[in-house]
């Protein structure tokens, strides 16, 4: 499992730190970025095995990220979206653009881990 690389895009540093810790503890290599530009930079270097991204991010929203990955990079890498509860419109847009899964805030780290595992198994 340790060879699996997760790109975590979350602008809340505390939450990002908590989730990163949990995912690393589960054995994944986690690259944590805090805004959309960093996401682009990371994707330019290497496409991860899975992307976990918040919808609301500076410079480059999660929706734009999905569009970028699917249409510009042409990658089918699994994408899990994190969004506030009730943000139905964005979630639907995310799924339309090709998001694989969605998890609502407040996030349960354990639940996120299960979803990541599942998506990686599918892939």
């Amino acid at each position: 499992m340790s060879d699996r690389r997760i790109l975590l895009a979350e602008d809340d540093e505390l939450l990002a730190s908590l989730l990163t810790y949990r995912l690393k503890k589960a054995g994944y290599e986690v690259i944590t970025v805090f805004d959309g530009q960093e996401v682009k930079d990371q994707l330019a270097q290497k496409v991860p095995d899975i992307i976990v991204s918040d919808i609301m991010m500076p410079y480059f929203s999660g929706i734009e990220l999905i569009d970028y990955v699917r249409n510009e990079l042409g990658s089918g890498v699994p994408i899990i979206i994190i969004s506030s509860a009730g943000n139905e419109e964005n979630v639907l847009s995310a799924f339309e653009l090709g998001a694989n899964d969605f998890i609502a805030k407040p996030v349960s780290p354990s639940e996120l881990l299960v979803r990541v595992n599942r998506e990686l198994q599918k892939a």
Binding site: L18, K105, P106, S108, P109, S110
Partner: peptide, 15 residues
């Protein structure tokens, strides 16, 4: 402050 911030963003066992 850290704990108060985090409790808003996490749920389940972590909370």
């Amino acid at each position: 402050e850290i704990l108060l911030d985090l409790q808003k963003d996490v749920s389940g066992e972590a909370r």
